[in-house]
Design a protein around this nucleic acid. Structure first.
Length: 538
RNA sequence: GGCGACGUAGCCAAGUGGAUAAGGCGGGGGUCUGCAAAACCCCUAUUCGGCGGUUCGAAUCCGCCCGUCGCCUCCA
């Protein structure tokens, strides 16, 4: 397996120190909802982690949460809440996003505020060794004492100075010196330290955390390319100076940045789309396929067209993986090993996911073709799911339409529920006026399930009106979901009966109305199949 | 100004010296089907930003030019 290492600027053979790969990825500063640039980065390190596991390595994955920082303090002040509350709120929002995107949680997820004693220990050590100095209640790292400074970003101290956008802090000995421990102003969160009240600088937490949970030398350290300088450069400086052990990191992996229009998507530019916004429009698999479609080191531009295309691709995989087949023929078989080789070969070469994904699509074609011809393809379908899983794609059967609604967006989606209820009732009325219940047994079922469905929607309205919490309506939501599924089933059943007696117009009416609700009824040689459109529409 | 990346079909995007330039999306035609959808079949880049050079041979290496982006300041 070969990986690109930012440190050497080359592709190198990947050989971890031992069976357990020590992997550290920079986490978020939770002061706002995460955007899809974050999604991209964490999806990338998620499939890298999954692939390493597939290759038989154990992986210990550590990812920090920077829960104390200027931006958190400022935002908390604006909102009139404590920095801790703000950080808590957005950390759990981030966790929700990660879970929905099928990103595996870190093995350890330390928070900066829980690491203060460890951080102070590292800062003290750096001062003792002459790599840092206290000034005005803060502590700075002395870059001139680090001969290797600039090794990761491939710049010299002189060339950094040439950039000239450097504020010369009066306290600093050298303009490039960076803060390890920051003296706090009155009213700011602060911890006691040998230098007075203060809080950790930005870079130091990662050094302290990785040292504590992964040891002096990590196998993989990941993050976005925007972190190379100064963040990761400074991490190397701190860690190697403190431990005296080199290298701090054996393989530095950096993902390309997500662009929106002509610019990088970033919090400071304000040109961002949050993960929640994206998930309201596209499935987790679609977002992942969008990311997998280009190499992780290349920049990627967000566009509705690209996400739309990814969504279609996700559907294609899903349909092939779960299509029902009646074929028994086995004299022609899909060469699963060939696909496995193609997939592995692609991933071994610096995680070439576009090629790996192509292997999945080729397999999809094979499955569809042989299945159409009446062959047994279950093993190939299972293999498709296996490969998809390594990339972190779910490719699962859709839950019922309503079950996809996110807890947070229940209120926002009430109009959708209403529309669904109304359409179902109208449709039922039309049908019952047209046909005798006795001639179509399924019509009786449609009556009861439609009524039940409408009842549940009304109940949810009542709960929301009384500003109930999620816990209170969880049961009703589950019931709604089940009823919706039963209701869809009964309409589908009725449609089958109508088709048997060639009542095409009514059958088509049912299909059209269901289509409006995001439900697709497909007639296949094996019967009518219910599918759900991946995109919700209001 | 310094450092780095990129420019491949209508769109997204692999391929980094050799045999027909992956794959996805879109578009056109066809098969199947009551219709629709899905699926399958055929077509959709004689050519890889431009100009030179190296080579038996280049999208792939070298030079110049044009264009785009990132980092150098908080950022995944």
């Amino acid at each position: 397996m070969r990986v690109s290492n930012t440190l050497s600027g080359k592709k190198e053979e990947f050989t971890p120190q031992d069976d357990e790969v020590k992997m550290y990825v920079c986490g978020v500063t939770p002061y706002d909802d995460a955007h899809i640039g974050h999604a991209m980065s964490y999806i990338i390190f998620d499939f890298i982690r999954r692939y390493l596991r597939f290759r038989g390595y154990k992986v210990k994955y550590v990812q920090n949460v920077t829960d104390i920082d200027d931006k958190i303090i400022n935002r908390a002040n604006e909102r009139g809440i404590s920095p801790r509350e703000l950080a808590e709120q957005y950390t759990s929002s981030f966790h929700e996003d990660m879970e929905t995107l099928n990103i595996m949680p870190p093995d350890v997820e330390p928070r900066a505020t829980e690491m203060i004693p460890d951080i102070i220990k590292v800062v003290e050590g750096l001062v003792e060794k002459g790599y840092a100095y206290a000034a005005g209640g803060s502590v700075y790292f002395r870059v001139r004492n680090d001969a290797d400074y600039g090794q990761l970003s491939h710049r010299s101290l002189e060339s950094m100075m040439a950039g000239a956008r450097i504020e010369v802090g009066e306290e600093k000995e050298h303009p490039m010196d960076f803060v390890l421990w920051k003296a706090s102003k009155p009213g700011e969160p602060a911890w006691d330290s040998p230098w007075g009240q203060g809080r950790p600088g930005w870079h130091i937490e990662c050094s302290a955390m990785s040292l504590k949970y992964l040891g002096e030398t990590l196998d993989i350290h990941g993050g976005g390319q925007d972190l190379i300088f100064p963040h990761h450069e400074n991490e190397i400086a701190q860690s190697e100076s403190f431990t005296g052990v080199k290298p701090f990191v054996r393989y530095w992996l950096h993902n390309g940045l997500l662009q929106l229009g002509q610019e990088k998507m970033s919090k400071s530019l304000g040109n961002l789309i949050t993960i929640k916004e994206a998930l309201a429009k596209y499935s987790a698999d679609a977002i992942r396929i969008f990311v997998l479609s280009s190499h992780y080191r290349s920049p990627l531009t967000y566009s509705e067209e690209a996400l739309e295309a990814a969504e279609r691709g996700a559907e294609r995989l899903q349909l092939a993986a779960r299509r029902k087949f009646a074929g028994e023929k086995t004299d022609k078989q899909i060469d699963i090993e060939a696909y496995r080789s193609k997939f592995i070969e692609a991933m071994e070469d610096d995680f070439n996911t576009p090629q790996a994904l192509a292997a999945l699509f080729d397999l999809t074609w094979d499955i569809n073709k042989l299945s159409d011809e009446g062959y047994f393809v279950l093993d190939a379908q299972q293999f498709l799911l296996e490969l998809a899983d390594i990339l972190g794609l779910v490719v699962s059967e859709e839950q019922s339409f309503e079950a996809k609604l996110k807890v947070e967006s229940i209120v926002a989606s009430l109009p959708i529920l209403d529309k669904n209820r109304d359409i179902r009732i109208i449709l039922f009325k039309q049908l019952s006026e047209q046909f005798e219940q006795s001639s179509f047994p399924a019509l009786v079922k449609v009556a009861s399930t439609t009524q039940e469905y409408a009842l549940h929607v009304a109940t949810i309205h009542e709960h929301i009106a009384k500003s109930a919490k999620y816990e209170d309506i969880k049961g009703t939501l589950r019931a709604l979901s089940n009823t919706a599924a039963a209701n869809i089933g009964s309409y589908s059943e009725l449609r089958v009966q109508l088709r048997q007696v060639k009542q095409w117009q009514s059958a088509d009416e049912i299909r059209a109305k269901m289509g409006e609700l995001g439900i697709i009824l497909e007639d296949t040689p094996n019967g009518t199949v219910v599918r759900y459109k991946t995109q919700l529409q209001s």
